[in-house]
Design a protein around this nucleic acid. Structure first.
Lengths: 220, 220
DNA sequence: ACGTATTTTTAGCCTAATCTAAAAATATGT
DNA sequence: ACATATTTTTAGATTAGGCTAAAAATACGT
C-alpha cells in the first residue's frame, strides 16, 4: 500500500530527475513539495524501506524500477484527467491542474483504462505533455522553443514549459492555444523580443520569456 | 476545512438518521463506518466542536444545518460520479460504488456542477437513488416494493434497497435492470415467493427477499 | 427497584506525516 | 587545507485518526 503523500513524493522525484540538470537531492525535493528538508529526509527513509527509491544518506535519491512504475502511472492518471476536464467538462487549461492533482490519487486500474478509452487514447495532455500508455511507454514528438526558431519560419504550438495559471491566462488573452500556428517574423536584438504572426493574421510582440516557454513543432 | 474522515462520518450519520428507525447512536455509527465505538466517540467530539453535529454524551447525535449541507453535497457528488461511471465509462452497477466513494472526496464546486451539466442533470443514480441538486433539494417519485404489489399488477423497476454486489449481480443474471417492466403474476403463500414476467416475456420465480429489495413505480 | 447487560466514554498507546531547532556531514573559497 | 557556508540528518514535539482495555453511564428484565 502506497499513501497519497508517498505517491506525491515519487512524482516529485520523477519530475526532478527528468529535468536532469539538478540531481534529486533533499532540498530540491523539499522545494518541489513545498515542505521542509527534515520532512523529506523522513519520507525518503520510508520510501527506501519500501524499495521505491535508492537512497544513500547525503547522496540524493533515484527511483527504483517499481518507484518509476508508480510515478509513471500517476502522471498517466493526472494527464488523462486533465484531458477529461478540458475536453468533456469544458475547463480552461489553467484550471485543470489542481483538480487533476486530486483525481490522480483515485485508485483503480480499470478506471484509468476506461477513462483512456473514453477519451480516445490521447497521446498528449492539454499542456502538450506526453501521456504514458498503460505499459508506461511515452510518446515523443520533435519540438523546439519559439525563442530557438529562425525568423521567417513557422510552427504549431504543441506545448508549454511554464504551467502557471498566470502564463496560461496570458496566452489565452493573446489568442494562443495548443495547435495555434505561429510565424516568427522578426527577432529584436535589443531585448530578444519577437514579432510573431498569429493564426488570425494579427502581428503581436512577445517577450523572450514567453518564447522560452512555448514549444513549437515545425511542419514538414 | 473538513477532512475525508470527517466527511465520511457525516455521511454515515445522515444515512442512519434517514432510515429513521434507529437513532444515530455511537454503535450504529461504528457499525456503518466499520470501526470501534471508541473511535466514533473521539470523532463525534471533533464534529461537535466544528458545529457539524449536535452531540450530547450518551444521547446520540444529529446533524446541524451545516452538517446536513455537507452530507448532502457529498451524496450529490457520489451519485453523480456513479452516473458518470456507468453511463460514460460503461461500468456495471455493482462496480461503481467503491470508485464513487473515492471520487466524492474530490474538492471543487465547479467540478460537481460541470459534471452535473455534462451528465444532463440526472435526478436519480444507477441504483435509483435520488440525486440532490446544487441547492440540496431532493427528487421524489412514488415507488413500492415488489413484495407489496398486488398480483396482476405491473411496474417498472426504479430502485433497489440492497446495494450489495451480490444482489446486483444476481439481478443482472436474471436480466433485471433499472427501468425493466415487471408483472407480478402470482404470490406463493407457502414462502411468499413470486412468479414474475420479465420484459422479454420469460416467467421467473423470485424469493420474498428479492421482492423486499426491489422498488417499482406503477405506471398510470 | 435492583442486579445484570449493553452502550458509551475515558485512558493510554500507536502510526503517518508534518514541524522547528540543533547537530552532523559535505561543499566551497581563498 | 582550513574556516565558513550550505545541505542534510537527527531529535523531539505535534496533529489526525485509529486501536484495546477498563471505567462509567444507561437500559432492561424480573
Amino acid at each position: 500500500m502506497i499513501s497519497h503523500a508517498e505517491e506525491n513524493y515519487l512524482k516529485a522525484i520523477f519530475k526532478i530527475s527528468e529535468k536532469g540538470t539538478r540531481s534529486a537531492n533533499t532540498n530540491a525535493i523539499a522545494a518541489e513539495m513545498q515542505t521542509t528538508a527534515a520532512s523529506v529526509t523522513d519520507m525518503l527513509k520510508r520510501l527506501a524501506e519500501k524499495n521505491l527509491i535508492d537512497y544513500e544518506k547525503y547522496r540524493g535519491v533515484q527511483l527504483t524500477g517499481e518507484g518509476n512504475r508508480v510515478a509513471t502511472a500517476l502522471i498517466r492518471k493526472h494527464r488523462l484527467w486533465e484531458v477529461f476536464l478540458m475536453e468533456k467538462l469544458g475547463f480552461a487549461w489553467d484550471e485543470v491542474h489542481d483538480l487533476a492533482e486530486q483525481l490522480e490519487h483515485v485508485q483503480g486500474d480499470k478506471l484509468v483504462d476506461r477513462l483512456d478509452t473514453f477519451l480516445g487514447h490521447p497521446k498528449f495532455d492539454p499542456h502538450g505533455d506526453p501521456i504514458p500508455d498503460a505499459q508506461g511507454r511515452w510518446s515523443f514528438r520533435p519540438q523546439i522553443l519559439l525563442s530557438a526558431l529562425q525568423p521567417g519560419n513557422s510552427g504549431a504550438v504543441t506545448g508549454v514549459d511554464d504551467h502557471s495559471a498566470a502564463f496560461l491566462q496570458y496566452l489565452d488573452q493573446l489568442g494562443i492555444s495548443l495547435g495555434a500556428r505561429l510565424e516568427l517574423l522578426e527577432r529584436i536584438s535589443f531585448d530578444q523580443s519577437m514579432r510573431v504572426r498569429t493564426p488570425d493574421g494579427r502581428e503581436i510582440t512577445l517577450s523572450d520569456k514567453v518564447g522560452q516557454n512555448l514549444y513549437l513543432t515545425v511542419e514538414g
